[in-house]
Design a binder for these strands. Sequence first.
DNA 1: AAACGTTTCAAACAAACGTTTGATTATGAA
DNA 2: TTCATAATCAAACGTTTGTTTGAAACGTTT
Lengths: 211, 211
Amino acid sequence: MKTRKDTKTGILDAAEVLFASRGPNATSLRQIIGKAKVNLAAIHYHFGSKESLLEAVLARRLVPLNAERLALLEDYELTAGKGAVPLPKVLEALVGPALRLSRDPGKGGERFMRLLGRCVLEPDEKIQGLINTQFHYVLERFRPALLKALPNLPPEEFFWRIHFLVGAMAHTMADSERLRDISGGLCNPDDTEGMVQRLVSFLNAGLKAKS
Amino acid sequence: MKTRKDTKTGILDAAEVLFASRGPNATSLRQIIGKAKVNLAAIHYHFGSKESLLEAVLARRLVPLNAERLALLEDYELTAGKGAVPLPKVLEALVGPALRLSRDPGKGGERFMRLLGRCVLEPDEKIQGLINTQFHYVLERFRPALLKALPNLPPEEFFWRIHFLVGAMAHTMADSERLRDISGGLCNPDDTEGMVQRLVSFLNAGLKAKS
DNA sequence: AAACGTTTCAAACAAACGTTTGATTATGAA
DNA sequence: TTCATAATCAAACGTTTGTTTGAAACGTTT
């Protein structure tokens, strides 16, 4: 029983790193066992299949992450009383915890944030399914707050802007490292708080745009 | 000599469709030849390799597309004289031609737009290389116009916002079909002009946000 | 028609993939 | 110790992947 958790979380950790950097479909089980230094059959023994492994990798961080998002939102709503929570606060609750993951190397760090962004943008239907279930649940909870903070915004326009928001957020999570190249080293993706603040103010202005 | 172009463009067309819907790496050559109804060896005879095939698929549409973007921008700059081109116009020149591709089914249509968005977000380094070369070239040309339209915006902030812009644009190009589901059928991704207009006004407001 | 280069085709290639097997070793309870 | 369960391991499974081969069919030119 002593080595079970070691092997299991060892696989999860290695899979998280590799899934995040090359994408789940481009990562082979043999690369994972090479990094985790376990036997190939251990993956199927502990997780059943590659798909279930990805599911486990996602669930390990995503469930607490979404709980944190909802808790933050409820906190802001309590403070706001019967009034609307200001849009920047709502956005902060939505994108902040996700982006801030990279600040906490112990809890998955940058690796998982990249993986999450990558999965959101992944064409593969199985991965889509895993993500959409979680995302719909969060969006359903955030939608009333967003609509409240954005009065006079037609529902159709609202969904379009959520779509743009998801794109900007996912791309930022998945591949901000690219920004270092594009900017010629001027931008530093490691400055997470700066990143959150910049993204929130960008989204805040975009969502409030006059249509 | 008569059938050469038929086979060659037949492969390009089939590859474009399949690459766009499942992603290049998730598409096998055998799926392509099945759709194009040609022999497997024809791909290597005409293109040399799978990677070169993707390169050819991209180049066929991307070169004229980027030319159109630059032509539009120069047109606006001519009209503006020595003054700055208004930001919405600059954005229109940047994202309009790409999104509008879906209006022209003869010239590749929605299929290529999806592929392009997908390639921008693709982790694979070889694909990144193909995209970055083209994108850098365009961005270098658009940067002065964007900076001119956005005075008082610090260079660091500028690059961050370009990054958000790319994310929103690529996600919109790659997978607006998803919006139909999320919105419960309320939003119609086939309304390309509406899509362009909404994205431009969203990006316009986001780029102008007070930092 | 004969000879030419170009294009198609069925068949096979080695490599890599996710998954399964059956034997072997470690662990905790009786 | 003895036994049963849990975990690890090397080896092989059948597919699928991108790529290569050599011969057949085609179109053009002489």
